[in-house]
Design a protein around this nucleic acid. Structure first.
Lengths: 131, 131
DNA sequence: CCTTGACCTTCCCCTGACTGGAAGCCCCAT
DNA sequence: ATGGGGCTTCCAGTCAGGGGAAGGTCAAGG
């Protein structure tokens, strides 16, 4: 398979696939003409990577997940720990974003949003306690 | 005021303050020795920027917010619109993260996390429907 | 007067995970 | 032989700064 086919079948852009080879996540063979030549196993790895990335794992997480996946004697505890650490980062991000959302929602609700210049959003950003 | 004082008083790292000057968000004067020389107005702007960034506004959003802040004849509607667009991006991000969290939580719960290699997390990432 | 240390300056490279684009080779069809 | 699409490499850019080097400045102490 050439990169175009793999891109279509994996749903990953060709650029991304080349990048993954660059950083050593996959190692496709080369045809005589220099084109990358992907086996089914490469496609499978790329699909794995695509799913892991969609769950928000970093590239380095993916590298470790792939290593664990290929290690027949892995301990599922190692995988679980990786996932749990990732999960707690996600939860932190969610809380941070929710705090922003709550503040912003309040400010937006207080703003008339008309043609007058008076604006509680700017007032808040400028320090609002006596300018 | 030198940059160190401004950094302390605004809570922003000196690097960040220099960066904000680089991209034209602030324009502090210079002393004879070449040091940046900040007025109270600069400090005020930096505090404004710090709060806007803490609410997740991008640098370009901040640039517009500052322009609106300094425009006495602004319409609060413009500010509100900016904030609402930002808010909807945040809400999208929250949903995306929550979807990841839900999937991950489920997978983590299904994983024994022991010394055996069998792992539903890896099974899911690898495509799990008959490999 | 000299030195020490804290502070300031510019400059350039690094981050994550790609994306865009240029220049050039390869292959197939007309 | 020519046109178009696909492939290659390499370089630069994204966002919002962070790290650190090399060197100028200032105030205090010996």
């Amino acid at each position: 398979m050439n990169i175009g086919d793999v891109s279509t079948r994996s749903g990953l852009p060709a650029k991304t696939i080349r990048y993954y080879e660059d950083i050593g996540l996959i190692k496709p063979h080369r045809s005589d003409n220099g084109y990358r030549c992907f086996a089914e196993a490469d496609l499978h790895k790329l699909a794995f990577l695509g799913r892991a990335r969609a769950l928000g794992f970093t590239i380095e997480d993916c590298r470790m997940l792939m290593a664990l996946y290929e290690d027949e004697s892995r301990a599922s505890g190692d995988v679980k720990q990786l996932a749990q650490e990732h999960l707690s980062k996600i939860e932190t991000k969610i809380s941070d974003l929710q705090a922003m959302r709550d503040t912003l929602t309040e400010l937006v609700q207080c703003c008339a949003g008309d043609n007058r210049p008076d604006c509680p959003i700017l007032k808040d950003l400028s320090g609002h306690c006596s300018d």
